[in-house]
């Protein structure tokens, strides 16, 4: 196992290089320069000023020179400064990552508890009324365009009923609140975003866990377990569920980049200060250092996450052995 881990960790190096190269390459293909937005067709800013910005940003140099420069800096853990506001990229990411992780981990917990219980119960009681109704509602949640449902919930729960704040992460008077008041305030702001992010993830996971459970329940070893006289509860939770986890773990690995990278749409709708907006703004402004920084950090965290998933895989499925 330790050998395997070491090998996988080593293999991450070429992967990371591949990822940064790919990001860099895609960026070069994108038309436009980071200087376009600053000089947003303002007749009072002449093209000489624009050229000067191009030189300052090193944009007149060929791409491989810039990539080499970038790698050299990153080796010293320096991701450079944003073109947009001159601030260190690492700092910009560090400011937003916690908010994104907070939102996504909360919704992940929601998704997992809800989806696994729904999935297992529906599989065990296949074709029951609960199975049908939950299938239906899970699909409604999955099938609805998220920004639309977010707006509807804002209107319904925020505006009409006045139960929840509409958008943002904190109230304007947050600074004046007591410690508990702060927690309560953030919690209220998080309800809608967590609910809406949860809604989409829930369906996929609930369906997959139901399918996986159905698959597993029919397997011989489950029948054997039953035949041994184990209680139905033990059969389902100890034997069947553990095997059903395999495809679910795969799914979790797939969710990682979004988990870290955030979602531009949720964050825009909910005026949430996360990674998705940072990334999208960087794309639109062609803010290369920020883009490269995000690409690399998200990739690194995702790779580590995937490794973890593979290790969990081995625990869940004794048939898979890693040498």
């Amino acid at each position: 196992m330790i050998n395997y881990l070491a090998r996988r960790l080593l293999m991450m190096i070429p992967l990371l290089i591949g990822i940064t190269l790919m990001t860099f390459f895609i960026m070069q293909l994108a038309p436009g320069k980071p200087t376009d937005l600053v000089t947003d067709l303002n007749p009072k800013m002449s093209s000489e000023a624009r050229d000067r910005l191009v030189k300052l940003y090193d944009l007149d140099k060929p791409w491989h020179v810039r990539y080499a420069k970038w790698v050299k800096r990153v080796a010293r853990l320096d991701f450079g400064e944003s073109f947009r506001d001159g601030r260190p990229v690492m700092k910009k990411i560090a400011e937003r990552l916690p908010a994104t992780l907070l939102l996504n981990i909360l919704s992940l917990i929601l998704i997992f508890t809800a989806a696994l219980s729904i999935g297992i119960y529906s599989a065990v009681h296949k074709d029951s009324l609960f199975d049908k109704i939950s299938t239906f509602f899970v699909y409604v949640g999955f099938s609805v365009p998220t920004f639309w449902v977010a707006l509807l919930l804002m209107i319904g729960l925020g505006l009409k009923l006045g139960l929840l704040p509409i958008s943002g992460l904190r109230s304007i008077h947050y600074g004046d609140l007591s410690a508990w008041g702060k927690v309560w305030d953030m919690a209220r702001h998080l309800v809608l975003p967590v609910l809406v992010t949860g809604l989409t993830g829930l369906a996929a996971l609930a369906r997959y866990s139901r399918s996986a459970m159905l698959e597993v329940i029919r397997q011989d070893y489950v029948r054997t377990a039953r035949a041994k006289g184990l209680s139905e509860r033990d059969v389902i939770l100890k034997h069947a569920f553990r095997n059903a986890l395999i495809p679910i773990v795969t799914l979790l690995g797939l969710m990682l980049p979004e988990l870290i990278g955030g979602s531009f749409i949720f964050e825009t709708i909910f005026a949430y200060p996360g990674m998705g907006r940072l990334g999208y703004d960087a794309i639109m402004a062609r803010d290369y250092p920020v883009l490269m920084g995000i690409g690399t950090i998200v990739a690194l965290l995702t790779l580590l996450g995937n490794l973890l998933a593979d290790v969990l895989y081995a625990f869940a499925d004794p048939r898979i052995r890693y040498q």
Binding site: G141, V149, L152, L153, I155, K160, L195, G198
Partner: peptide, 21 residues
């Protein structure tokens, strides 16, 4: 049911008019 909120919100939208004005 969490997902039940969607139709509920839809309903609210159609009710329209003045809520807590």
């Amino acid at each position: 049911m969490r997902t039940g909120l969607v139709p509920a919100a839809l309903g609210l939208l159609f009710l329209g008019g003045c809520g807590n004005l």
